[in-house]
């Protein structure tokens, strides 16, 4: 139970001040009564006034969601009158489904997915764009003689089902690749065991898992989607349009507290890692601090690295348009939703 001590102190100070100047009016007994009343009622009323909401990230607890964990643990959500529960994502969970089913208030997801959902009639709105670029890579072992994108032709490429499918298809489409896609259900084992020749990987996650499996960077061939014309912005915060329309202040509060969480996370590495590791351990993800340290650092690169300063949390209209058109061209959506209906961020 959180108590707004600062607020209480102000109130008490005011009462004491009044008691001094109006000594005759405020009897001592009355003062004691008021103070007792305030002590009992104030905290309860504070908690009662908080909005209970949930947030569902699209993957297991890791530094990819450090900002939300920090905002929760450092009490930033509380400061914005929110009582947030962080739900646990994972490979079997599509957060947009949960959003549509009203099982969560907010969720995190890729922009391509968000656009597709909106285009398919599920009325979601983007409240903030956290990662403004693509961090997706294709990685391969150099020892298997893959040095250029063309070397992948005729080879097996591992990929995750779901949201990852769109950028990979876009890449294949754009570069006219002839690869055999093999679904990957876990991490890099598929590549390590040579069950595939290359795999889709996140810069902040699987790439480093390869490093943590003993591969040196110079032993890996890395193809960055962002440099191959498939620069899809990734993580953003979503909610249903109805939720937004019924309580825009709450939505704004959630975004502001989350952004503050991110900013705090990037400037307090060790403390943030402690928080992240606690969440990861609770979910038994079997990760380690070294890996989360790498992920947090890459998140910092991705989240803060933007062409336009002050764009933190803002969805760029151009980025939206380009991605929308790409999806449209690939027949993934019928029509690009209107930007102003889709993005409800705060400038």
């Amino acid at each position: 139970m959180d108590i707004n001590l600062a607020g209480m102190y102000d109130t008490l100070s005011a009462l004491i001040y009044l008691a001094r100047i109006n000594g005759g009016f405020f009897r001592k007994q009355i003062l004691v009564f008021w103070m007792s009343f305030l002590l009992l009622v104030l905290p309860v009323s504070q908690v009662l006034s908080k909005e209970k909401v949930t947030f569902l990230p699209q993957w297991i607890p890791q530094a990819q969601f450090a900002g939300y964990m920090v905002a929760k643990e450092k009490g930033f959500y509380n400061e914005w009158d929110l009582d947030v529960t962080l739900l646990r994502g994972g490979p079997d969970i599509n957060p947009f489904f949960n959003l549509a089913a009203r099982e969560t208030t907010f969720c995190s997801g890729w922009l391509s997915e968000g656009i597709q959902q909106r285009a398919s009639g599920i009325e979601v709105v983007n409240l903030a764009q956290i990662i403004q670029q693509s961090s997706l890579l294709l990685i391969a072992k150099k020892e298997r003689h893959i040095d250029t994108l063309a070397d992948l032709n005729g080879r097996k490429v591992g990929f995750w089902m779901g949201e990852f499918y769109m950028p990979i298809r876009a890449l294949i489409f754009k570069h006219d690749l002839n690869v055999k896609l093999v679904p990957n259900y876990t991490t890099v084992t598929i590549l390590l065991k040579d069950a595939v020749d290359a795999m889709a990987a996140m810069w902040y996650n699987e790439y480093h898992r390869m490093i943590l499996s003993g591969y040196n960077p110079d032993e890996l061939s890395v193809f960055r989607f962002s440099e191959l014309g498939v620069d899809f912005p990734e993580d953003g915060i979503y909610c249903l349009e109805k939720t937004y329309l019924s309580n825009p202040v709450m939505c704004e509060n959630f975004v502001r507290a989350s952004l503050k969480g991110w900013q705090y996370a990037f400037t307090h590495e060790e403390e943030t890692l402690d928080i992240v590791m606690a969440y990861a351990d609770a979910a038994n993800t079997g990760t380690n601090r070294a890996h989360q340290r790498w992920m947090l650092a890459r998140m910092k690169d991705l989240v803060l690295d933007s062409d336009t300063p002050g764009s933190f949390g803002i969805l760029d209209r151009d980025d939206y348009r380009k991605l929308g058109q790409t999806l449209e061209r690939m027949y993934m959506i019928d029509e690009v939703p209107e930007f102003d209906l889709f993005f409800k961020g705060w400038h």
Binding site: L212, S213, G214, G286, T287, N288, R289, A290, H291
Partner: peptide, 10 residues
């Protein structure tokens, strides 16, 4: 949880 490489990195 840890790998020999994660320990090496830390």
């Amino acid at each position: 949880r840890e790998s020999i490489f994660s320990v090496a990195e830390e």
